[in-house]
Design a protein around this nucleic acid. Sequence first.
DNA 1: ACTATGTTCACCATTTTAGTGTACATTTGT
DNA 2: ACAAATGTACACTAAAATGGTGAACATAGT
Lengths: 145, 145
Amino acid sequence: MLSQKTRYAMVALTRLAREYGQGAMLISELAKSERLPQRFLENILLELKKMGILGSKLGKSGGYFLLRHPKDVNLAEIVRQFEGPIALLSCVSEKAYQSCEFCKDETACNIRKVFKEIRDLTFEKLENATLEELIREHAHGVLGG
Amino acid sequence: MLSQKTRYAMVALTRLAREYGQGAMLISELAKSERLPQRFLENILLELKKMGILGSKLGKSGGYFLLRHPKDVNLAEIVRQFEGPIALLSCVSEKAYQSCEFCKDETACNIRKVFKEIRDLTFEKLENATLEELIREHAHGVLGG
DNA sequence: ACTATGTTCACCATTTTAGTGTACATTTGT
DNA sequence: ACAAATGTACACTAAAATGGTGAACATAGT
């Protein structure tokens, strides 16, 4: 299961995506309106700023805002940052690969095959999940789900 | 990422699946030959026994053995037991569903849609990964992956 | 009875999670 | 220049999860 931190990050980002182009939003307002713990949220927003996803302004009428276009931020990047590798086994991770301590021959390992398929499918779904997609209403039409 | 416990369970099970029908295997032999920490493995085997997957025999020539046919044990069951829910968000979990604290309308939530798809694909892959599949050599043929 | 095995249950150290406390730096309005 | 409103930095903490270990016990076979 995803950590609270990751969930809060996704909630905050989708909200800031909805406000995209409308200037900065106060942490306090974001926290209150999305029901996020403010002090914890501060850490998260800072981390997103360091990733180059958010910008901030100090002083009166300051706050946070999305730097990139919502179509240029996807969940794969967010999940990697806050959860670590997308893969369930390091032997199938792209960014954090480590050879398996049990396999003599990884290419022949069927456990690995299963988790490689899961990783690839998961990554694809997360990568296609841009903030633009996430804030779109009726994303796949009312009929046909 | 999966915990060590889950990984050890998968290694132990695939080994016991290879020995299926050949009587009991000593914990010590299993631990040594698969390079698993014996004392930790004991806990894991006991848990698998309580799940009804393994049987055991005490005394001389005792040990553990697979109770069910390898085709009747799959990774979904194992992962659920040792990792908890397969879903990454509880709002898309089948066995551990909890309503989302952020959504007014879950059916309209696009974040949820993404993680529901990921859960369903992951579950399907894990469910199809029976021990029989996992110990099969050249599971999908040498050509064509 | 003896020995080889699994069983039970409590315990432990380390890491991760989900935050909080306190002080500081920057910008804006007056 | 100054005050107020904001974000920034970094250390700290409580609770839970992870990855085990210790010690005594129960049972089966010889």
